[in-house]
Amino acid sequence: MIAFWILAPVMVVCALGLLFARKAVHCALLLAVVMISLAVLYAVQDAPFLFAIQIIVYTGAILMLFLFVLMLVGVDASDSVVETIRGQRALATIVGLLFGVTLVVGIAQVSVGTVVGLDEANAEGNVIGIARVLFTKYVFAFEVTSALLITAALGAMVLAHRERLTPKLGQAEVAAQRMRDYAEHGKHLGPLPSPGVFARHNAVDTPALLPDGSVAESSISRVLAARGSVNSAPGSARQVQRLGGGDQDVPERDDSSDAGGAGR
């Protein structure tokens, strides 16, 4: 019970955090805390097998899947605080409270009776006990879950599959396309300049400088530029200039120009 009384408040707080955290990643981490705590509670309740499953399947697989999708969707995508459906939040709170209070009151009124405990059932060990029940009484349901899992896997594959609408470009076609672009639009033919020539701590956020001292904006990721966590290219240029002690006049260039945008 000590474990329970320690973990229960933590779980409730973390669960509530799920409601209020702005960022989805934080939600995932809070959920991970709740799940691991639950696993401990399972262990406390004489369910070591489910303890392991909870850690491996839930925390290990499912939650990681969540994080994986979060990364795909955009880890920085955060909810706006404004509620779009009028009255939804208030109603949800009221109904939720009503539900929770009724549930708790109802449970409190029910006497569960003597707790039998699992000492007898777990006499041979919990895993063996579960296996006995699972492969005898529940064997049919167990087999059916295999069908369910296969169906789910197939469904995920179908949903994730993207039909190719245009023929796949081979190396030769890509090269031809590049030459064509160069011929028609004068687009830079060679590799892009790599960033980080004058990097001091993080090469990726420092743009490259062109031979004339101007900044090659195509050398840094657009994502970083959009996020604003990039060193200002003209600023870098001036730093370089200062370091070099030269008195060359570096042209001021606007960060928002799209000079390198097409090269990616």
Binding site: I85, Q88, A92, V95, L98, F99, T102, G106
Partner: peptide, 26 residues
């Protein structure tokens, strides 16, 4: 209205009512 959350709200409200009825009856 097309909002899944509204539907979920009515679902939860229904569940709450059923629960309430059960508790009251019991």
């Amino acid at each position: 209205n097309g909002f899944v959350r509204s539907y979920a709200l009515s679902l939860l409200a229904g569940a709450a009512l059923v629960l309430l009825a059960l508790v009251v009856v019991n």
